[in-house]
Design a protein around this nucleic acid. Structure first.
Lengths: 235, 235
DNA sequence: ACAAAAGTGTTGGTGTTACACCCATGG
DNA sequence: CCATGGGTGTAACACCAACACTTTTGT
């Protein structure tokens, strides 16, 4: 205990993803900073942890302040806490460190309406075209993007965010939007997922414009259980 | 900013694994607590973050205080920070929260000698037989164990901790000690790894007692590159 | 010679890729 | 009747599990 300990303020920064299934774009929610440092720059939505509040609760609150969410997936990402990641922690500001516990979220796009008081300052950005962000937020975003792709390959998080019933094409669009160009061919994606057996045929069909009507499926969480941590699809 | 913010002390807890290749046991380093709370209980080695010190640096320092390490793998695991995880944070202790950023380490066993001043209070424990630990450390340990198995399947971390040159049997023992009973058969493990082509035959042989001498191999980091994030072995 | 350790091969089955093909509907 | 989107099938190939087998050493 010879060395002085660091004092910390702990904040939560959220990487909130959403998939616009109409234009097939992967989006991330950013807010424009209204104070120094980095005034006017885009940044990840974040907030400091309050008394008696768990980290996850802080993450959820931050999210709920920006958008109205009904369905989402949320998990911790990484903790960034090196000295000098925040310009405010210069020696004359009491040597206080800013620790950022980052969370990763996936929300249902059509329902994730931006709340009005923040409309001017927060908006969805296409992940491929995000500008330079405040602090080390570009790094956090990249880390989150990687995690998103991993999760999609191994976990059923897509079903947390797709409608109750969906077509196999919806699912395929969703996956290929996130995974990028060199994703598997539709017919193989299809047969692989159906063989796994956790997609229930509802019997209902839906017709979108021309073409044969598509079968609507439903995700069966119980039937999925055996596939925990096993890859669902390949690239 | 209506609600009061939480004050934090930030510590790092390490899950330090090691494989005893002689007895084929997976070990974790624990220290016996010498102060309240949980006086006398075993716990993960941890330390509070000092001024100007990065989280990773703290993790490394904590590790170096307990054992002399030359070769290791270190990565961040998870941040546990809910209220009430530490009994010290009761309302009469200023409502201060203890945040634990956990790190996961894999060290080379034969060289990881315990440093003398701590000998009485720290020791290696077989992972299968760890007692009840202080705080939420059992939870952290389990989380680390899961990560270890994942990492072994997807990353070449075994080679950070095996000697420069090793036999395929050494490698197999290493893997099956961590992965458990139902791990692949030796001959299949062998042919799979050799086919991948990042193990260089050194031409040298080694003889251990009776039996045919084993070829010594070396890990080739460059040849490994294409296999980033792809599974190396199967269960 | 024999046991022990190292290393090779075979076989049946399964998964994956890439592609061609059939089905149902709207205009 | 044809373009469009939905859905099925298949041949070639790579891979994996299990297990039997050969080779090389120490005693």
């Amino acid at each position: 205990m010879s060395q002085p300990l660091a004092d910390f303020k702990v904040g939560v920064d959220n990487v909130i993803f959403s998939i616009d299934t109409v234009t097939n774009r992967l989006l991330v929610l950013l807010v424009k900073r209204r104070e120094e440092p980095f005034l006017g720059k885009w940044s990840l939505p974040g907030s400091l942890v309050r008394q008696g509040e768990s980290l996850e609760k802080t993450a959820y609150r931050t999210l709920a302040e920006k958008i109205s969410v009904s369905n989402l997936y949320l998990e911790q990402l990484y903790t960034f806490g090196g000295p000098n990641r925040d310009p405010r922690e210069s020696p004359d500001s009491f040597g206080c460190r800013y620790l950022s516990v980052s969370y990763f979220a996936l929300v249902r796009y059509p329902e994730a309406k931006l709340l009005s008081p923040f409309n001017q300052y927060s908006s969805w950005h296409e992940v491929k075209k995000v500008p330079q962000l405040a602090f080390d937020h570009n790094q956090i975003l990249n880390y989150g993007y990687q995690r998103l792709r991993n999760k999609l390959e191994y976990s059923p998080i897509a079903f947390d965010v797709l409608p109750e019933v969906f077509t196999l094409n919806d699912l395929y669009q969703f996956y290929s939007t996130v995974m990028g160009e060199n994703f598997a061919d539709y017919s193989n994606f299809r047969s692989r997922l159906l063989k796994l057996g956790f997609l229930l045929d509802t019997g209902e069909k839906t017709s979108r414009g021309a073409g044969r009507p598509a079968t609507l499926y439903r995700f069966d969480a119980e039937a999925f259980a055996p596939f925990q941590d096993k890859p669902l699809v390949f690239i």
